[in-house]
């Protein structure tokens, strides 16, 4: 299943990150995973939440730049070489990984990784054919 990730443009001004988190909190939106990519001048905050549509709406109302993108969640066996194997499957199907980050979830003996591919639908399709377990938002613990 595709996961809708909410990305937010952040100017690196102190307080901006906590502002976003509190807007979501005030609107009872739960955050399951987050990651931050940043440079000296700005950052991109990526969030997995329980209600991405609502998150997009409330953030936009505050004139914050938001984009919802499709990502996939991959459960990686807690064993050596498993991530390498998955990456190879993707590469062999000309799928690239733009970025990925880990989160904490309920699937036993697995590390959960959120992954952005050039073609998320195709990636999901191929991984399921190769019996690589994927996960959904409800499988991730809240932050």
């Amino acid at each position: 299943m595709l996961i809708k990730q909410v990305s937010v443009f952040l100017e690196n001004k102190s307080g901006k990150l906590s502002e976003i988190i509190s807007i979501l909190g005030e609107n009872h939106i739960d955050i399951s995973a987050l990651s931050m990519a940043d440079t000296a001048d700005y950052g991109v905050l990526r969030l997995i939440v329980d209600n991405p549509e609502k998150a997009e709406k409330v953030l936009k109302q505050q004139e914050i730049i938001v984009k919802v993108t499709n990502v996939i969640g991959v459960a990686i066996n807690d064993g050596p070489g498993d991530l390498a194997k998955i990456l190879k499957i993707l590469k062999d199907n000309s799928l690239s990984v733009e970025y990925m980050y880990a989160c904490v979830g309920k699937i036993e003996n697995s590390a959960l990784v959120v992954m952005k591919n050039n073609d998320p639908e195709k990636a999901l399709d191929i991984l399921s054919k190769e019996h690589v377990p994927t996960f959904d938002v409800k499988d991730i613990y809240r932050v």
């Binding site: 990305s7 443009f9 440079t39 991109v44 730049i65 938001v66 984009k67 993108t69 970025y99 952005k116």
Partner: peptide
């Protein structure tokens, strides 16, 4: 000023 249209979720495209 950034706009919704330019914003992709990666740093590379902003750069």
């Amino acid at each position: 000023e950034m706009s919704d249209k330019i914003f992709a979720d990666d740093v590379k495209s902003i750069e």
